[in-house]
């Protein structure tokens, strides 16, 4: 009789936590979207519907909010998401070269996904690691002091 639950038990636990923290479903929407993004890879329509259902919000309200913010992924992403900082400090320290390296080695363009689906590249505006640039975040891990060689070594750990 019960409908298939779109979220894993782990996500449900996280969502329950989030729901408890906020007075209304609407207030809990943005953190809930992150959980859905984690679960579904990106905010595809099913993810938005699942969040709407969980929080008791209209689907359209969820989509409007989600599409307003660029931090959410609105396209299918690779298995690992690289957020490469290109803001002033990192740029001065050579982030542009790194972008070129990623393009040459993995076929990655900003906003794109490598043909093998292994990496997606997002160009980030300052990730708060200006003292140790160039820096990037891969999934949840911060990597600093990168150069053309080190970035490839680091990324070798992400399959």
């Amino acid at each position: 009789m019960t409908e298939p639950q779109p979220f894993s038990p782990k996500s449900v636990a996280l969502l329950e936590e989030i729901r408890k923290k906020y007075p209304t479903g609407r207030a809990a929407l943005m953190p809930a979207l992150y959980v859905a993004q984690e679960e579904f890879g990106w905010l595809r329509p099913e993810a938005l519907k699942a969040v709407a259902e969980f929080l008791g919000l209209p689907e359209m309200t969820v989509r409007s909010t989600a599409t307003f913010y660029s931090m959410y992924r609105h396209r299918k992403a690779g298995r690992n998401v690289i957020r490469l900082c290109t803001n002033v400090s990192c740029m001065v320290l050579g982030a542009g070269t790194l972008k070129g390296v990623l393009g040459n080695v993995y076929g990655l363009a900003p906003g794109g996904t490598s043909p093998d689906g292994r990496f997606s590249l997002e160009v980030a505006d300052c990730i708060g690691a200006c003292g140790k640039g160039p820096a990037m975040i891969v999934n949840d891990d911060l990597h600093t002091g990168l150069d053309a060689k080190k970035i490839l070594e680091v990324l070798e750990n992400y399959k």
Binding site: P45, E59, M60, T61, R63, S64, F68, Y69
Partner: peptide, 18 residues
């Protein structure tokens, strides 16, 4: 709640969920 503003800035437009 059938339509809403989607996107932001110059790209924003109105459409239904689908």
């Amino acid at each position: 709640f059938a339509i809403g503003v989607v996107g932001r800035g110059a790209g924003s437009h109105v459409e239904p969920f689908s």
